[in-house]
């Protein structure tokens, strides 16, 4: 086998094809409505990847991430409404979001598991309360409008195509960052704190600090996703700070499969597409969301991507070994 042929693994080929499809998407999709849905998938995928840092790799289930997402959106929207430029507003928004994430972390990392979840939920509700009730600051239920999208380096983001490419660039940077972080020593130690907290501690790792940094990373990318969300809608209201947003994002992470790079992306695509399709026919999105939650934990608790991988391995095993072999139990390692 030649060196070139060895480079073309199925995995590399799949990545190249996916990249080409994503880069040319506006050309073969055409309809701005669908391009906009693609943009939504991309920025929600960034948000889901951010949450996955904690849920998947850190084993820390946060139900307050809508607060971080909205913190960036609201900060930018309010600064823009007061006449500041896009660069100032966006930089400040990200800075404020990272600081907020630090506050979240300081309070919630006092516990793990169910305690962590409940504290993040409570902090998320505080931010919802500020967005909804502190009307003199946030304009309450009426939300905040943003007059225009920025045009960095003269590249117009006003149309569906332009905005899609912005989302794509941010998405690719995010995926690359996550891929590097996951494979780095930091990623390994984060997974270590998830699986063997006491052993990591005994080995001299500062478990708390590792989790704290993971929270900051998660907060930063949640903020980036929040900014894209703001510019996409050019509007933000307390609705996005509600628990539903945190729950939907958790659904993205879990439906795709936690602690994988592809899982949250697939999950974001499924949830966004379903939400758009379901909302077009019925108004019962919340019920559908609830039913999906229950179905997933009943039938595919490890998520769609690892779940499908398990199914595929099982099928191949059956096919390869003939009918004589009983079905092997492959669920232990969970892909």
């Amino acid at each position: 086998m030649s060196a070139v042929a060895r480079l073309i693994t199925p995995r590399a080929a799949a990545i190249v094809v996916a990249l080409l499809l994503l880069l040319t998407l506006p050309a073969w999709v055409g309809n701005p409505y669908y391009i906009n849905i693609a943009s939504q998938i991309l920025f929600f995928a960034v948000f889901a990847l951010a949450l996955n840092v904690l849920v998947g790799y850190g084993g820390l289930v946060s139900l307050g991430h809508a607060g971080l997402f909205a913190m960036a959106g609201y900060t930018a929207a309010l600064l823009l409404a007061r006449g500041h430029g896009h660069l100032v507003a966006d930089t400040a928004a990200l800075a404020v979001t990272v600081v907020t994430a630090a506050v979240y972390a300081l309070l919630s990392l006092r516990s793990t598991g169910i305690g962590f979840l409940m504290i993040t939920l409570a902090i998320g509700q505080i931010l919802w309360g500020i967005a909804y009730r502190w009307a003199s600051l946030t304009n309450g239920d009426n939300g905040v409008n943003v007059a225009s999208r920025p045009s960095p380096f003269g590249f117009s983001l006003a149309g569906a195509d332009g905005f899609y490419y912005l989302c794509l660039v941010v998405f690719l940077v995010c995926v690359a960052t996550m891929a590097v972080v996951v494979r780095s020593p930091f990623g390994a130690s984060l997974r270590g704190t998830r699986d063997q907290e006491r052993r990591m501690s005994a080995l001299g790792y500062n478990v708390w600090l590792i989790r704290f940094y993971a929270f900051l990373l998660s907060g930063f990318w949640s903020g980036v996703a929040g900014l894209l969300f703001l510019y996409y809608n050019q509007f933000i209201s307390p609705q996005i700070v509600a628990l539903t947003t945190s729950a939907e994002t958790l659904l993205m992470v879990i439906s795709g499969g936690t602690a994988t790079l592809l899982g949250p992306i697939v999950g974001a695509a499924i949830v966004v597409i379903m939400k758009n399709v379901v909302s077009a026919y019925i108004v019962r999105w919340n019920m559908v969301l609830g039913i999906i939650f229950i179905l997933i934990i009943s039938f595919m608790p490890e998520g769609l991507v690892p779940g499908s991988a398990r199914l595929w391995a099982w099928l191949r095993h059956r096919w390869g070994a003939g009918k004589a072999q009983p079905a092997a139990k492959t669920g232990e390692d969970g892909a």
Partner: peptide, 25 residues
Amino acid sequence: LEGQVLPQVLLTLGFAFIIGDVCLM
């Protein structure tokens, strides 16, 4: 789901959404 936090959260959250929506209906 005894002892499994994440599935318990999803299940109770799922029912919370369903109950909320049924009440609205």
